[in-house]
């Protein structure tokens, strides 16, 4: 089970374009990181079919969005950045609509129980209208609607917004339960959480993928101030990128530091480096 994004191109206008190419595999939880306006939501909308790509293809297990949209969308769960706040809809009506649209014939209670979603306490929200929900309640409901059809791929845009710490813990717990057979792409600014709960991080900036980090194979990182040419680092230990080098072995990391001392901008454990990197980026001192 996998999500494949192949040469996906989208034009905002004549001057702004984006281009993505990556693949998510079964059981993978992937964090999508980028500053505001980097193009995270656009990428997720393209994958969710909300926006139409100019070229390229997105597919889940061979079902392509452009060719078999119904099959593709039936395998997808989407948590949008903004949840609908239609005052006419009560939560129970909304979830019934979701079941109808996803062509699910089972009752809502059965589904919630079967999928371990009862801890999200959706029952208490059922009589309320969508407009009456708090941001956190909306996020819980949004997660439920995405998970109801047991999707093969989950796309989530800022799912942690508005959740209290306990609910955030519950969120990750549920996600881990759900993603045994599912791949998930989670866009968020909660770097620490993403680094802790995701196996992989995708960094995007200026509507392109700038870094793809497999956190399982990287423990240390070094960020070079200049373009690194002719590096002798073992390619299996590092993700090839012109400025960021990742290391599985502490020994290799230390050797690299010794050799490139004057060219190193940041170095250390992965999470520390990434946090600093974002601080630099936020202050405008450094750009990808």
């Amino acid at each position: 089970m996998s999500l494949t994004v192949t040469d996906l191109k989208f034009h905002y206008n004549t001057s702004q374009h984006c281009h993505y190419h990556f693949r998510l595999t079964k059981g993978q939880r992937v964090g999508l990181i980028g500053r505001n306006g980097a193009g995270k939501s656009t990428l997720l909308k393209l994958i969710a079919g909300e926006l139409s790509a100019k070229s390229g293809e997105v597919s889940i297990n061979g079902s392509a969005l452009t060719r078999q949209p119904q099959q593709y969308l039936s395998k997808l769960g989407y948590v949008p950045d903004q949840f609908p706040d239609d005052k006419g809809y009560r939560v129970t009506d909304f979830l019934t609509l979701v079941l109808a649209c996803k062509n699910i014939s089972r009752s809502l209670d059965d589904l919630l129980a079967d999928q371990g979603l009862t801890q999200l306490n959706i029952g208490e929200l059922l009589p309320l209208s969508l407009q009456q929900l708090s941001l956190g309640q909306k996020q819980r409901l949004s997660l439920v609607q995405a998970l109801l059809s047991q999707p093969e791929c989950l796309i989530m845009d800022e799912p942690l917004n508005g959740l209290d710490p306990t609910q955030q813990q519950q969120f990750w717990q549920i996600l881990k339960q759900q993603t045994n057979n599912t791949c998930a792409l989670i866009a968020s600014h909660h770097l620490v959480d993403l680094a802790e709960h995701c196996q992989r991080l995708l960094f995007i900036d200026d509507h392109r993928l700038v870094l793809d980090l497999n956190l399982d194979s990287i423990k240390y990182m070094a960020v070079n101030t200049s373009i690194i040419n002719n590096t002798k680092i073992n390619e299996t230990d590092a993700l090839l990128h012109d400025k960021v080098i990742g290391f599985q072995q502490e020994q290799n990391f230390n050797q690299y530091l010794l050799q490139n001392d004057s060219n190193i901008l940041l170095s250390g454990k992965t999470l520390t480096v990434l946090t600093e990197l974002f601080r630099y980026q936020a202050s405008g001192e450094w750009q990808w």
Partner: peptide, 22 residues
């Protein structure tokens, strides 16, 4: 006006477009 335009205004139409219903 309470159908599609209202759904678009509330964001529901956007969510529905990610469901397997044309």
């Amino acid at each position: 006006l309470q159908l599609r335009p209202s759904r678009i205004a509330s964001g529901l139409q956007r969510l529905l477009s990610s469901y397997p219903v044309s």
